[in-house]
Simulated scan of single mutants.
Amino acid sequence: MINTKLKHDRRDFRIKKDSLVPNTLSFENSPAFNFVINYPDSEISEFIKLGSIAEAAAKDIRTAARIVANGDLTWCLQTFLNLSRSGSLSLKCSNTLCEDSINIIHSDTLLDFKGRDRHFIVCVQADYPRRQWSHYHIVQNKNQVFRDTSYIPHWVQPGLIKRNASRTGVKRVAYSGQTFNKNLAGSEQAWKKLLEPYGIEFVTLSNESWHDLSEIDVLIGIRSFDSKPFNNKPPSKLFNAWHAGIPFIGGYDSAYKQVGEPGKDYLLVKTQQEALEAILKLQNDPALYDELTSKGRKKALIYNQDTITKIWEDVLTNSVAKRYRIWKERSQYERLRFYLIRNYGLLHHKSKQVIKKLIT
């Protein structure tokens, strides 16, 4: 990952549109939606040439994997590219917060950029802290929704390859995602040892193969063996399983229950023993396997690139636009609010970092 402190002149890369779709920003001199990423001009230019992350995955899996594994790229760059294909909004992607724009920026990047009172900021919170000085927030879990916040589902894995239609039975179970950050309950070795007596292989997919589920029979997404809801996490793995035609076994993440129905389109477990029993049930009951995948395919129609694009467009041109109008109308109050809350937020962050260092 490139960690660049940009000190050169910044510029943006704009997708120009003659007009906006009906019911979008209606005020005079409608601003562009500026998706902010902390990368040099040269890299942004190359990113935009990709066209879409799915196309990039077909040509260069390393570039696509880098984007999907990086918070500001998977949220801000990917959203910019997907909305650009729709062609209904005035968009740009840049490495700076702009005065004449509605700026969409990842929480971690905003902590670095900070912002000023003349910037209208939409913070993509993801699984990072909420930056209270932002004027609006985009979240990936419905339990993160507060005032001036909209929930938008995370994008489905770009370039996802479905399970091979010729595969039968349950021979390979996979976890697709990062393991160093404790997102997988139990060790990879423990999972292998658990399933080996039943002739089932357990694998973890690297970030360059997250999209390839062609040789996977069951996908798991269990962060801990308890009832912890992980209210800052998205249901991405469940979406991917539905699109790949694979049964999903998940933990007690609130995001799974927000979009799915345990026992109908995925299986819910609390312990590793329950996970084993669920896997063996799928192995021994083809009818259950087919029922879960059939209902999953129907859910996949609700959560795909087209539907999520429409959700983004609706949120930006309605809820965000409304907040922008209020921000413009009461500028003196907003300036004071911004500086007070930003300064407090930055001080709070520094205090937390000091406490962490003292503890460690």
Score class of each variant (00 low, 15 high):
103 N>E: 10
104 I>N: 11
104 I>E: 10
104 I>F: 07
106 H>R: 02
107 S>K: 12
108 D>A: 11
109 T>W: 13
110 L>Q: 09
110 L>G: 00
111 L>P: 00
111 L>H: 01
111 L>M: 09
111 L>A: 07
112 D>Y: 05
112 D>H: 06
112 D>V: 14
114 K>D: 01
114 K>H: 02
116 R>V: 03
116 R>F: 02
117 D>Q: 02
118 R>W: 08
119 H>R: 07
121 I>E: 07
122 V>M: 08
123 C>A: 04
123 C>Y: 03
123 C>N: 12
123 C>Q: 06
125 Q>N: 08
126 A>P: 01
128 Y>F: 11
128 Y>I: 03
129 P>A: 03
129 P>R: 12
129 P>C: 01
129 P>S: 03
130 R>S: 06
132 Q>N: 04
133 W>R: 10
133 W>Q: 04
134 S>A: 15
134 S>F: 08
134 S>Y: 04
134 S>L: 15
135 H>L: 08
136 Y>A: 11
136 Y>N: 11
137 H>I: 07
137 H>F: 12
137 H>Y: 06
138 I>E: 13
139 V>C: 14
140 Q>W: 07
140 Q>A: 08
141 N>V: 05
141 N>G: 02
141 N>Y: 04
143 N>S: 13
143 N>A: 14
144 Q>W: 05
145 V>G: 13
145 V>N: 12
145 V>Y: 15
146 F>I: 04
146 F>H: 15
148 D>T: 10
148 D>L: 15
149 T>L: 14
150 S>D: 15
150 S>Y: 09
153 P>R: 09
153 P>D: 14
153 P>T: 05
153 P>G: 10
154 H>N: 14
154 H>K: 10
154 H>Y: 13
